[in-house]
């Protein structure tokens, strides 16, 4: 293992330090296919420059498209971008962007555990990528909202058509967004929080 020498480690900038009062963190996961805007969304709302944490997987779990004809085991590194929003002096929210394709699900084990909920970023040019993700979130009991990025060249479906295509009940919010805009990404997170809040209201004991 080549650890970075402590002299070469660049830590957080002074303005990126959390206050000592920071007691606990919560996390939200942004999941979607390649190029759908995960990094953009994390970056547009994060108070720190988005960071990357990496995990290594061996070829067996990677799938055939990354195999360049070698029969030696190749390790592939999967990067997860994340950002941070300080909520109060005590509470911090972390946002993780993670690829949705099934072969990356090994990343999900520690990631979705304990997450408040998820945002499924939808690319209408490749809706199918999201099908498995949504199924998996349902199986895991992770509450989620769907955010549709408006790419100029993407087919534009009505919310109703998308709801029916994704086979989602009326409760699950589906919103359009522009991940490049902070206010728009913030609104998506707000939609998720309101949705979670409504779940809390309905499941609260009388």
């Amino acid at each position: 293992m080549d650890f970075k020498n402590s002299d070469t480690v660049t830590g957080p900038r002074a303005e990126d330090h959390l206050p000592h009062t920071a007691q606990s963190a919560v996390k939200v996961v942004i999941v979607g296919g390649f190029g759908v805007g995960k990094t953009t969304m994390v970056g547009s709302v994060s108070e720190i420059r988005p960071l990357t944490t990496e995990e290594t997987m061996t070829q067996a779990g990677v799938g055939v498209d990354d195999n360049y004809g070698s029969d030696t085991k190749t390790a592939t590194t999967v990067a997860m971008d994340f950002g941070r929003i300080s909520i109060t002096d005590q509470l911090v929210l972390y946002l993780f962007g993670t690829p949705g394709q099934e072969r990356f699900w090994f990343l999900w084990n520690g990631l979705f555990e304990g997450a408040l909920g998820a945002v499924v970023l939808l690319d209408t040019r490749r809706l199918e990528v999201s099908f498995d993700v949504i199924g998996r979130l349902e199986e895991r009991g992770v509450p989620f909202v769907v955010a549709v990025n408006d790419f100029p060249d993407a087919p534009r479906y009505s919310i109703d058509d998308m709801r029916s295509a994704l086979d989602l009940t009326d409760e699950v919010p589906i919103v359009r967004c522009d991940a490049r805009r902070r206010a728009s990404s913030r609104d998506v997170l707000m939609t998720l929080m309101r949705f979670l809040h409504s779940i809390a209201m309905t499941s609260a004991p009388a």
Binding site: Q23, V26, I87, L91, S203, A204
Partner: peptide
């Protein structure tokens, strides 16, 4: 310092705090 994780019964005041924090963004 352990995170606050989603529990069977979500904590409303926590969610309200997060919403309030997001509003300030």
């Amino acid at each position: 310092r352990a995170p606050i994780v989603r529990s069977a019964l979500p904590d409303r005041s926590l969610l309200e705090a997060v919403m309030h924090g997001l509003q300030k963004l």
